[in-house]
Design a binder for these strands. Structure first.
Lengths: 207, 207
DNA sequence: GCCTTAGGATAGAGCTACTATCCAATGCGT
DNA sequence: ACGCATTGGATAGTAGCTCTATCCTAAGGC
């Protein structure tokens, strides 16, 4: 199929497809002649992936490009999942310069939950975030971290258990990114409702 | 003090202050004469609040304006807190048209946790989100919701208990917004670490 | 042989949050 | 009294992002 047909099937405008080609999100079609290119079902799939990452997950073109380039370079799946996590869960605060000493609180959490103690984006992000909270004078008690981390441990156990390894790398990215986003948002919605409920009870009691 | 001094004390450029005045984020100073205005310590505080909401919490000018106008209109604190929650925790997906029938799953959660059963932004957002997940074919089991909501109930209990009512409304917004944002981000960082830990264990076992 | 399409380049549009410039009016220091 | 600095108001420009549109030449298909 050629550009116009690809546009029709994917629902993405021809101009946008050209833009994605320029930005390296979509591999070039097979050039038959200087002015004719063939696109395949893979291109349709790739476009659907791009749309989902843009519209549902809300990633930027640059972030999507990074993930897709990793996928095309054959990066191992675990590393790819870590990259997905980084962009979906915002682990790349500029403050996240890896390799710092680590906060005592984060170390305590990792020990308490007996999580594998290896440096990672998630670990660095946690350290950076705890330091940020400290610098803002927001207290983080051991009890709070304990409760939070226990809750997240329970949740993550279910999340990972529900994960089945998909066929293609593109689909791995799709399900991982969309799933992570939806689950984290679900968590925040439940948090909001729980907070509101507690707040109502408290205000009623005070009144 | 006049504009230049206000700019110096707050660290915000004079041009930006003018912009905030135009957008109604900052109340006009007391006009002494046609070309002279007096600003007070309240203006400095307000600017610090605006900066925190922009740079730390990442709200848009429009969202900040909405909150500040509510505060200036003397809206009750509980309603103000709900508004803060809405913008900080992203409860305003366009799909959140309140008053729908409600999903059975959400009803079940509310009953299970014995949360006050009143329609609210949080409740609507949860309903909309569950419907969205369903439309995307992402299964949400009762067990998952149970685990998630129990975790969030525990967490919210601590969050609310830690809240002390601040003096001024401006400070209420500041501590609520920054606190909510930092706590929700902390939760996501812990979720990331927990997921990564579970994933590593799983991949190791599979390998 | 003409119409359509590909690819490449470039420019514009719409959004957000500023930033800069220009202006007339006017107070303050000297 | 005079001029510099400052104010509010208006307007325009900038920068980053994601497209969208236009223009062009080359070339294949009917």
């Amino acid at each position: 199929m050629q550009l116009k047909e690809l546009s029709r099937q994917s629902g993405v405008s021809a101009a946008s497809i050209k833009y994605y080609l320029r930005e390296g999100l979509l591999p070039a079609g097979e050039t038959v002649h200087a002015t004719r290119a063939q696109y395949s079902a893979r291109h349709v799939e790739r476009l659907e992936l791009i749309q989902a990452l843009r519209r549902i997950v809300g990633l930027t073109i640059e972030q999507i490009g990074g993930l897709l380039r990793m996928a095309d370079d054959g990066v191992p799946r675990l590393a790819l999942l870590a990259a997905v996590q980084r962009v979906v869960l915002n682990l790349d605060s500029r403050a996240t310069a890896g390799g710092g000493p680590g906060t005592p609180a984060a170390d305590a959490v990792v020990r308490l939950r007996s999580w594998p103690d290896s440096p990672s984006d998630a670990r660095n992000a946690l350290n950076a975030h705890l330091e940020l909270m400290e610098s803002l004078n927001i207290p983080v008690s051991g009890e709070l971290l304990d409760t939070y981390s226990k809750a997240m441990n329970d949740v993550a156990g279910l999340d990972i258990a529900a994960t089945t390894a998909p066929e293609s790398v593109d689909r791995l990215i799709l399900t991982a990114a969309v799933g992570m986003h939806m689950h984290s948002q679900l968590l925040l919605k439940l948090l909001a409702l729980a907070q509101a409920s507690h707040a109502i009870r408290r205000y009623e009691r005070d009144a």
